[in-house]
Design a protein around this nucleic acid. Structure first.
Lengths: 240, 240
DNA sequence: CGGTAGCTTGATGCGAGTCAACCCATGTGG
DNA sequence: CCACATGGGTTGACTCGCATCAAGCTACCG
């Protein structure tokens, strides 16, 4: 890939061990890298920090894409555009989430939903790093596992035929990621929600209306909701 | 498929480095384990080979589940049962595929679609093995990545609103996994297909009828189809 | 033979899609 | 300050496609 930088043993493919593995826990990785000059080379651009405005593209997707990211602030959407004109939002990435770790994700398009702050990595380097450092490798594997399980949840959501159940599940999902108590903010547009849950925006809007009427959700400020969590679960699990 | 490799250090749990890492390519793993008495301890039951009849459960799912499998013959379905009575088939596993590698998958129910031959592993041991052997770890990571990308494809399928497109996509998917030339066998029932693509069996049946009438598929033997691949792609990508 | 399970086909209803109008907040220029 | 344009959201009238209910069909097995 890019063999030009081999400042440390970490650039070696296999068999290397980092001097202090505990410094390489994946959660700490960005912070550690920021403060350590020697570690900067792991970031694709020096510093690696990057801010993106709403609806700006982070990458357009394609076989050449080799970057991956961690979200620090804001929300990112990963999108497929079908030849027939349809759009499918495959995943939302929230603060703390990684995206672009798999080749499949790098084929997608990544766009900022809200103002976003990211850390940018070279995917290949990160992978090689994970392979030579067992601890980091385990963390990376956990991230992979988490994203796989999230995709399964998404499948479960799309399997539901009822529009209101889908929206309820989506709100539960959102709450699980950025909820505080029974409050959750909804940073994405109806259009984004629709393309995530497999509905049209009018149907999403009507489903919102239904939930509001039933007081399963209540508006509190712009794009901020109070959820009746047990009520939503009841709706989701109910026969009707 | 009868390698006479002898590496003795393999039974050690953690911190081991195999003398010949190339002997541990994930693809070869089962074969190696079969023939080596010393390696048997990696399999949860001695031998690890297991056959399952159609519609029999392989595991029922739950937090205690710690086994994972590789399919040698046949097809396996991974299923979620929702409290409201609905059923969602999250994934089909074909010969060569692994399942149960992630905790999320181990929460599901695994059932044989057709007569199945499996290899059975202890998930924790396999994971630890991957962590201490870089080459095997990379293979495991690739399996994880593959299953993540397959889940994304599934999301893309379920995002489509048209029943015929969904079925066409499903057949393409099936062909990709067990197709030969333009021939593919369909081992699973309409009910399984329906719960995989998010439709009812009647709708699936009608969609089959439509594809047949258009000669995008043609019956050749029991549960065996000849596909018009370009025609199917045209249908999938078409506006209507 | 009858029995059953899986698949197909038909008639009907319902819910999501579609098309369209409207609201409302924001922004722009005169 | 207002007139106007714009984009996102909501709401209504209507259509269409999938779900539903129901009947028949075929194959396999007793």
């Amino acid at each position: 890939m890019s063999p030009e930088l081999n400042n440390t043993a970490l650039a070696e493919p296999v068999g290397c061990l980092c001097p202090d593995p505990r410094a390489w826990r994946l959660e700490d990785l960005p912070c550690t890298l920021e403060t350590e000059d020697e570690s900067r080379s792991f970031l694709i651009r020096q510093g690696g920090r990057r801010t993106v405005g709403p609806n700006e593209a982070i990458f357009a997707g394609g076989p050449t894409e080799s970057r991956c990211f961690r979200v620090l602030e804001g929300v990112v959407r990963l999108v497929t555009f079908f030849p027939d004109g349809a759009r499918q939002i495959v995943r939302f990435a929230f603060p703390g989430d990684y995206f672009g770790l798999t080749h499949a994700e790098r084929l997608l398009t990544a766009e900022a939903v809200s103002p976003v702050v990211l850390l940018e990595f070279d995917a290949g380097k990160l992978q090689r790093l994970g392979e030579c450092n067992p601890l980091l490798g385990r963390q990376l594997a956990n991230v992979l596992r988490a994203s796989a399980s999230e995709a399964l949840d998404h499948v479960g959501l799309l399997g539901r035929k009822d529009a209101r159940k889908r929206l309820a599940l989506f709100l539960r999902f959102l709450h699980q990621n950025i909820g505080l108590g029974d409050i959750v903010s909804v940073p994405m547009s109806r259009s984004d929600i629709a393309d995530f849950v497999g509905l049209k925006i009018e149907t999403v809007s009507r489903a919102f209306g239904y939930l509001r009427r039933r007081h399963l959700i209540d508006d509190v400020g712009r794009g901020v909701l109070r959820l009746d969590l047990v009520g939503l679960d009841l709706l989701i699990d109910g026969e009707g």
